[in-house]
């Protein structure tokens, strides 16, 4: 069994699977990174991912086009973003708890809609893999990296985009300013809430995309499809020390853990009750990783603190 695991073909399976499983984490944690850098903690992305996932499934199955699914996930993500922005920026609701509310709303609503509008979950024609010319033909390497669906490539591209935006643009400067010193930023004429509105909208759209990335390549929706991935994505932001590249590394690590556990099951290395113990791996890893990185780097000073000019 173990000898089967350490073969080239088995490792190709694990690594290709790693990348597919990492993609939803990556979308969600990139969006959350942007939000947290501006001082907004959004625990509700689990719920937004569910809503994005359901809407992408529904749109794709009704129109027959997976790209309509992507669009639907973006739209519903944006709507949820408006809601969250209103609740946290205008009403100053506690961000952690209102996130739990969004989670419950998404969990319940998608379940009801799925039961009433879909019922039998016929698999949709998902996004087909795009083989990158030439690169996909490289033995082993091509199979691992260059035969994926377009959302995978998009997520990696967004790592670069997010890094540039945060570090090289005025918008990024504003994000960092309102996340670290909202009062000072306000004095300098930067609108704290408008900046946060944008990061919330972007973050929720990305969470919607993360939901789509759980549906379109895999073909269907189910109740509680995300199974806690949204919460792990929030943890990955801490893991990644509030940097897109860090979120990327964290997503790959978690995808890897899931893929290894999966291959253990497929090869019969773990079975029965033991697989409950290996299923704990991502959660325990999150705690361990947070314990290692937490002291190293400080979080944005104004994280989860609502901004009120009048104090």
């Amino acid at each position: 069994m173990w000898s089967e695991f350490f073969t080239v073909s088995s490792l190709v399976v694990v690594l290709a699977s790693t990348i597919r499983l990492a993609t939803p984490f990556l979308f969600a944690s990139l969006g959350e990174t942007l939000g947290q850098r501006s001082g907004v903690l959004n625990l509700g992305i689990e719920g937004v991912m569910l809503i994005g996932a359901f809407s992408s499934y529904y749109a794709a199955s009704k129109t027959g086009s997976p790209w309509m699914g992507v669009l639907a996930a973006l739209v519903t993500g944006c709507v949820m973003g408006l809601l969250y922005a209103f609740v946290t920026l205008v009403l100053h609701a506690e961000q952690g708890i209102s996130g739990i509310g969004v989670f419950l709303l998404g969990l319940g609503l998608t379940d009801v809609l799925f039961q009433r509008w879909v019922g039998t979950p016929i698999p949709i024609d998902g996004l087909d893999p795009w083989n990158i010319p030439f690169l996909a033909d490289i033995p082993t390497v091509g199979e691992i990296f260059f035969q994926h669906n377009p959302l995978v490539y998009l997520s990696v591209l967004l790592v670069v985009v997010a890094t540039v935006v945060i570090n090289r643009t005025t918008f990024g400067l504003n994000i960092r300013a309102v996340g670290e010193a909202p009062d000072a930023a306000d004095t300098l004429g930067i609108s704290v809430n408008r900046t946060r509105l944008f990061t919330i909208l972007i973050g929720n759209c990305m969470a919607g995309l993360a939901g789509a990335a759980l549906v379109l390549p895999f073909g269907t929706f189910q109740q509680n499809l995300t199974s806690g991935r949204g919460f792990i994505a929030v943890a990955l932001v801490y893991f990644g020390a509030w940097r897109p590249i860090g979120a990327f590394a964290g997503s790959l690590l978690f995808g890897f853990v899931l893929a290894v556990v999966n291959q253990f099951g497929a090869l019969g290395i773990v079975s029965g009750a033991t697989s409950s113990l290996t299923a704990m791996a991502p959660a325990i890893l999150t705690i361990v990783v947070l314990a290692i990185v937490s002291r190293r780097i400080g979080q944005p000073a104004a994280l989860s603190k609502p901004f009120d000019r009048n104090g």
Partner: peptide, 23 residues
């Protein structure tokens, strides 16, 4: 005869409303 998941969604809305009313 509505799906019971509707109660979960309702819960979520209650949480959002209650927490929003705090300030």
């Amino acid at each position: 005869q509505v799906p019971s998941a509707l109660i979960i969604a309702l819960n979520g809305i209650v949480v959002i409303f209650v927490v929003s009313s705090f300030r």
